[in-house]
Simulated scan of single mutants.
Amino acid sequence: MTDLARQLRDYRLTTAEILYHMPDHPALLQSFIWQDLDMAPHYPVLTRFLDYWQRNLDGKLHSVKLATQGLIAPAEVRLVAAELRLH
């Protein structure tokens, strides 16, 4: 499926900051930024990625911060209180 088709199906640009413990130094945290189109509120793409991380990578997850933004939205309408014309 193309990105445009996914956006029309209400997928949104999703960015996650993933903090994880470094495998060799568990007391230290490292940051990883992940970004993809995903569907709120269940975020299936991010969930699959985090499941993969926990099964296959050594760095234990600490926390995930999430931000999302719809890229395709209805036009914003503003009402005008007055109209001035110059001739």
Rank of each mutant, 00 (worst) to 15 (best):
36 D>T: 04
44 P>F: 03
41 P>W: 06
43 Y>E: 01
62 H>Y: 14
59 G>T: 01
11 Y>L: 00
69 Q>H: 15
9 R>Q: 11
85 R>K: 14
53 W>F: 06
66 L>I: 01
4 L>Y: 13
18 I>L: 01
35 Q>G: 14
11 Y>T: 05
49 F>L: 03
84 L>I: 03
4 L>E: 14
11 Y>H: 05
64 V>A: 09
78 R>N: 15
44 P>Y: 00
14 T>V: 07
25 H>L: 00
38 D>I: 00
68 T>E: 09
46 L>T: 04
35 Q>N: 11
68 T>I: 04
63 S>Q: 02
66 L>F: 07
14 T>M: 05
18 I>Q: 01
2 T>R: 02
83 E>V: 06
73 A>G: 15
1 M>E: 13
59 G>D: 04
71 L>C: 14
82 A>G: 14
18 I>A: 03
23 P>N: 04
18 I>G: 09
19 L>I: 04
1 M>V: 14
8 L>C: 13
79 L>G: 13
58 D>C: 05
50 L>D: 07
42 H>C: 04
6 R>W: 09
46 L>Y: 03
47 T>F: 07
83 E>G: 14
3 D>T: 03
37 L>H: 07
70 G>W: 05
77 V>F: 14
37 L>F: 12
49 F>V: 01
82 A>N: 12
8 L>Q: 10
62 H>W: 07
4 L>T: 14
35 Q>T: 10
48 R>Y: 08
14 T>H: 09
2 T>M: 02
59 G>I: 00
43 Y>S: 05
46 L>P: 06
25 H>F: 12
77 V>H: 15
29 L>H: 10
35 Q>A: 08
37 L>M: 00
59 G>H: 03
36 D>A: 09
59 G>A: 06
7 Q>G: 12
15 T>S: 12
6 R>C: 05
24 D>C: 05
31 S>L: 00
30 Q>Y: 13
22 M>E: 10
72 I>L: 05
53 W>Y: 08
68 T>Q: 10
63 S>I: 02
42 H>S: 12
47 T>I: 00
59 G>E: 02
64 V>L: 01
67 A>C: 14
33 I>V: 09
8 L>I: 05
49 F>A: 11
71 L>M: 05
68 T>H: 13
62 H>I: 01
